[in-house]
Computed example of a mutant assay.
Amino acid sequence: MGDQLEKFIMDNREAFDTATPTDKTWSKIDQRLTKKGSVWPSIWKVAAMLFMASTIFLMIDKNTDEKEGPILSEEFTQAEDYYVTLINQKRQAIKSQLTPEQHEQFLVEIDQLDSMYVELKKTYQTNASNDRVMDAMINNLQLRLDILNKQLDILENIKNQNNESDISIEI
């Protein structure tokens, strides 16, 4: 049956091509297309807006990541952690032996070196990982540790002198 229909269409093709639909038919087709087609443009508009918003977000996010500056090497980070841990231990040892006023006076130089270290870190971030700045940061950490060690030695000597004078008085 399908072959007969196909043969009929092929034989009468000219008759099909000459017939045109009426204006009423075209208006019905046009109404149906405008009703169904009105949803798609709004969906495409929403999709385009979402795409634009995500693109802008990603561009802003990328720009803020670039402003953070260079990342410190793993080796430097480990060294920094090591020194900071030692410095904090020494600070606690000094704090336990002194009154709050003495503690504050004793650590004036260390606090100055702390602020210098913060400045060095900012400089490192802006100067695209300058090796001299990184060396200065390590030297700063070592200097703080040396000062704290000397301060602990001084406190130990004072403590030993007080103990010796107490012993000699008792005898």
Rank of each mutant, 00 (worst) to 15 (best):
M1N: 05
E6H: 08
D11W: 01
R13N: 10
R13W: 11
E14A: 14
D17M: 10
A19P: 01
T20E: 14
W26G: 03
S27C: 07
S27H: 13
K28M: 11
D30H: 04
D30G: 02
R32D: 13
T34Q: 14
K35G: 05
K36V: 11
G37C: 05
S38Q: 09
V39A: 10
W40Q: 12
W40K: 13
V46T: 15
A48S: 04
A48L: 05
L50G: 14
F51G: 13
M52C: 04
D61L: 09
K67T: 09
K67S: 11
L72R: 08
L72W: 04
A79N: 08
E80M: 07
D81V: 06
Y82G: 05
Y83H: 07
T85R: 13
I87E: 03
N88F: 00
I94C: 02
I94T: 03
S96W: 03
L98P: 00
P100S: 11
H103C: 09
Q105G: 12
F106A: 13
F106M: 15
D111M: 07
S115Y: 08
E119D: 10
L120G: 07
Y124H: 04
Q125N: 05
A128Y: 10
R132C: 01
M134V: 04
D135L: 10
A136Y: 10
I138Y: 06
R144S: 07
I147F: 03
Q151K: 11
I154T: 14
L155C: 01
N157T: 10
N157F: 06
N162T: 12
N163L: 11
S165F: 09
I169T: 09
I169M: 09
